[in-house]
Design a protein around this nucleic acid. Structure first.
Length: 641
DNA sequence: CCGCGGAGTGTTTTT
DNA sequence: CACTCCGCGG
């Protein structure tokens, strides 16, 4: 190993070399957190600890892979360290011990599936339908999820998030119970259930807890400020026996409160693990001082005070960040696109630049401008692959192959057929529910094929397709091919942009072909869905467009933060809640601290809200003397069209 | 019983 | 503006 002392500073070194006992690492933005984990894994492995005895829990799969592959460059054994998200880890463990949960197999509900299941419960719950303004399925799902993630009652969630539905709290709780029962009988786990079941498994089964402690002798958890109560509990149970646990986080970067994350988990950690070592990393290796000056000014404006102040280890000089004002989102986008091109000519590759925004939607005009200039780009965040209708259609067929009791998927694929609506599909599904196997289910379908019905031909084709697909020896790729051939005409009937969607499906086919098991493919797809990237395959060196959330943990030479106006950042829904505003403020901080040497903040005057035109106010996070004084202001109103 | 079209509602971030 | 839900015509 090359000298660790040369690679790391004093605090980083202490983190790396502290092997036993609990450690809490407070790592400011750009303080080399990724590097510390990389070298800590390496140090452990080279000290003789088996890689499979180390568990690295991270916020995204990408983050874990990144750290482990860096460590593996020094020592290939590091590749065998087990890493991933809490959800993916939960899935693996639960699959192994599903017998303890009372069923031998289970299936994952993604958000859309969960909403469909909630809808079934909602419809079964008689009076709800007659009520006007009863919460819709997506609202119910959010409520149910918050109940679990924040560990509070339906009443409390409604009170704080949806006060207009407070009068339905009894009914909502009732439907929640129905939903829980539904999932249990159908062996379905939504995202939250993965964590709940794992927590319960660990809490109630000492033998399993001991076994897992024996296997995962050293545990590291990244981005701890964005874990929720359940994840904190899971961490506690995993590390309870040996106490070899390191957590890394930065409370100033906590941005997942909406998902139940609580930065109090960090504060609480020393209580749970008494005698834990606390190490602070405050030297910033990423950004030049002028950028950090802005970041520190933003930090100082926050209601909650943070003890840290970032100091740059890089050059003290550098470019003062720009603050630019535009007429509207189009001129803002045009300017950014031009500037990206200029920077590239100056020698900053497209791949070393990023444009960040509060939500993906506002980047559409920019995408047009980039296309026009043939600047390659990738979009992260926003609409996910699995949320699009055509992807859900295709996956529904696969879901049925592994779980013939999946009535949600049955309904989906039946209603694709001309002439089959809710009633007919419900009748068919009623029969399918009696089937003991997929084979029987297909036989049940054939009962409904009669000469009179308009949908008979289509239904017969569907039954035939499922029959051939169920012969697994064909392999996933071949099954996919058959499915696409069948689905192609349906796709054309359903969407105008069928060709584009077909391309998406080919991409998924390629991903799927690497799997041997359909259920593994489906689980991975639900737990770690590929980003919907618009980059064409021939586009190397693409510019990154990303939500600030998806940019977490990443860095670029040049960063553009666009749409810095009231209603966008902070987002309109946060305006009436102080806690939410604070989270938006931290989000702004996260965005700024992604930049190494160039930072461009921009805003536009003309905006729309709820389809109405309005005049934007500049973001309150910028509108203060201590921040403005650190920026070079310019008004760029020129239209370029 | 399906499916179209109009009315009304709410618009974000992610595993 | 976009999506969901509801009511009516075929």
């Amino acid at each position: 190993m090359q000298s660790l002392e040369q690679e790391l500073n004093k605090q980083q070194l202490e983190v790396v070399k502290t092997m036993d006992g609990p450690i809490l690492v407070i790592a400011g933005a750009g303080s080399g957190k990724t590097r510390v984990i990389e070298y800590r894994v390496l140090y452990f492995v080279q000290s003789g600890i088996l890689p499979q005895n180390i568990l690295l829990l991270t916020f995204t799969k990408k983050a874990a892979q990144e750290m482990l592959s860096r460590a593996a460059k020094h020592d290939a054994r590091c590749r065998y360290v087990e890493g991933g998200t809490f959800h993916a880890f939960a899935y693996r463990i639960l699959k192994k011990y599903s017998g303890r949960m009372g069923f031998d197999e289970f299936f994952i509900l993604d958000e859309a599936d969960a909403e469909d299941a909630i809808n079934i419960c909602l419809n079964n719950y008689g009076t709800a339908k007659t009520e006007k303004r009863f919460p819709r399925k997506d609202t119910l799902r959010k409520v149910f999820s918050m109940v679990v993630n924040k560990n509070i009652s339906v009443d409390d969630v409604l009170d704080s998030e949806f006060p207009n539905f407070l009068r339905y709290s009894f009914e909502v709780e009732k439907i929640r119970q129905d939903y829980i029962k539904y999932k249990k009988t159908k062996h379905l786990l939504d995202y939250d259930d993965l964590l709940i079941y794992l927590r319960d498994l660990l809490e109630k089964n000492e033998d399993i807890r001991n076994l897992l402690s024996e296997k995962y002798k050293y545990i590291m958890v990244d981005e701890y400020q964005d874990t929720n109560k359940l994840q904190a509990d899971i961490t506690f149970f995993l590390a309870k026996n040996h106490r070899n646990i390191m957590i890394v986080g930065d409370d100033a970067q906590s941005i997942y409160g909406f998902r139940g994350a609580s930065h109090e988990n960090i504060m609480d950690f020393p209580n749970k693990f008494a005698g834990c070592k606390i190490i602070k990393l405050e030297t910033n290796y990423r950004s030049q001082q002028p950028i950090l000056d802005v970041a520190n000014a933003v930090l100082n404006n926050m209601r909650k005070k943070f003890s840290k102040e970032l100091r740059s280890a890089k050059e003290k000089h550098g470019n003062k960040p720009d603050l630019l004002f535009f007429t509207n989102i189009n001129t803002e986008s045009q300017w950014i696109a031009e500037k990206v091109k200029d920077l590239e000519l100056e020698g900053i590759d497209f791949k070393d630049q990023a444009v960040l925004f509060r939500y993906a939607y506002i980047s559409i005009p920019l995408q047009l401008e980039l296309n026009r200039r043939r600047i390659p780009f990738q979009v992260f965040g926003g609409l996910r692959f699995y949320e699009t209708a055509h992807v859900k259609d295709v996956l529904a067929h696969f879901k049925i192959l592994v779980n013939h009791k999946d009535e949600i998927s049955w309904a989906r694929i039946l209603m694709l057929l001309e002439g089959i609506g809710p009633k007919t599909s419900a009748r068919i599904i009623e029969d399918i529910n009696q089937a003991a196997s997929l084979k029987e289910a297909i036989e049940k379908i054939t009962i409904h094929i009669n000469k009179k019905a308009a949908y008979s031909k289509a239904l017969a084709e569907m039954a035939a397709l499922l029959k051939i697909m169920s012969f697994e020896e064909a392999g996933i790729d071949k099954q996919f091919e058959m499915l696409l051939e069948y689905y192609y005409p349906l796709l054309h009937g359903k969407f105008d942009d069928a060709m584009e969607r077909m391309n998406d499906l080919r991409v998924i086919r390629k991903i799927a072909s690497d799997y041997h098991s359909i259920s593994d493919f489906l689980a991975d797809f639900a737990l770690e869905s590929p980003e919907k990237t618009i980059a064409a395959p021939d586009q190397r060196n693409p510019l990154t467009l990303s939500t600030i959330h998806s940019a977490k943990g990443l860095e670029w030479e040049a960063v553009f933060l666009m749409g810095l106006v009231e209603g966008v950042l902070p987002v309109s829904f946060s305006l009436d809640k102080e806690d939410s505003i604070e989270e938006e403020h931290r989000l702004f901080y996260v965005g700024i601290t992604r930049a190494k040497s160039r930072l461009y903040l921009s805003a536009h005057y003309e905006g729309t809200f709820m389809g109405q035109n309005q005049f934007n106010q500049i973001s309150r996070f910028l509108d203060s003397e201590n921040v403005l004084s650190k920026l070079k202001q310019e008004t760029v109103c020129r239209t370029w069209t």
